[in-house]
Amino acid sequence: MLEIANLRKYFSSGLLWKQSVKAVDGVSFHIERGETLGLVGESGCGKTTVGRLLLRLIEPTEGKIIFDDIDVLQLKKNELRKLRPRMQMIFQDPDASLNPRMKIGDSIAEPLKLQGHLNSGGIKVKVLDLIETVGLNPEHRNRYPYQLSGGQNQRVVLARVLALNPDFIVADEPTSSLDVSIQAQILNLMKDLKREMHLTILFISHDLEVVRHMSDRIAVMYRGKIVEIGTANDIFEAAKHPYTKTLLSPSSDD
């Protein structure tokens, strides 16, 4: 479904003395159709950058991204725009993922309008359908994001993403800003939706336990590189890389 090879992204800063930070330093992996790959690592390890690179929201310095036999990095701007609806991203802060001036209903309708397949009546029906799918009430349509809780807003984000029937979703710490009891709701919802809609997911998180629950395979990232990749069980039962072991150990020895 998706294959990336030797992906690199260096950020350079400084006007006179260019300094470059190797945010992603030669990452390769593949994701099968219908699979969830978990990507774990600590803040600043480059995991979010990988997610953005996959959707070409930022341009890589080097590397190859093949999505469904399409070489994503070779696409022209308008070809990329056509591909975009098939690959979606869920961000970690649901409150900032929604335009504060748009009502929930309009936010969910937006992708459908942009796609232009449905008339306004059809959009209305589909929006109600999506609202139900993600477990919101029809009355939420006329509310604004700031009137909803973080968990509810993340459901709206899910509805928006699902509106396009995407094949592939990058979920970047989708529950890190939510309370534990709400996190469980959203993660379970995502699992159900994945099963029903045959989604392929890259699930990015710093929380190993969460990733274990969500993923078929897990990739561990450290300082821009993938240090270990394997099935969820292998990682938890027989971690090989010392860094993975540190992450797993219940208390550290400094």
Partner: peptide, 19 residues
């Protein structure tokens, strides 16, 4: 009980509704 059960390590069983 619900809070404990909703932890990822304890099975991720959600409490319905919200605070």
């Amino acid at each position: 009980q619900g809070f404990l059960n909703s932890l990822p390590s304890m099975g991720l069983k959600a409490i319905k509704g919200m605070s």
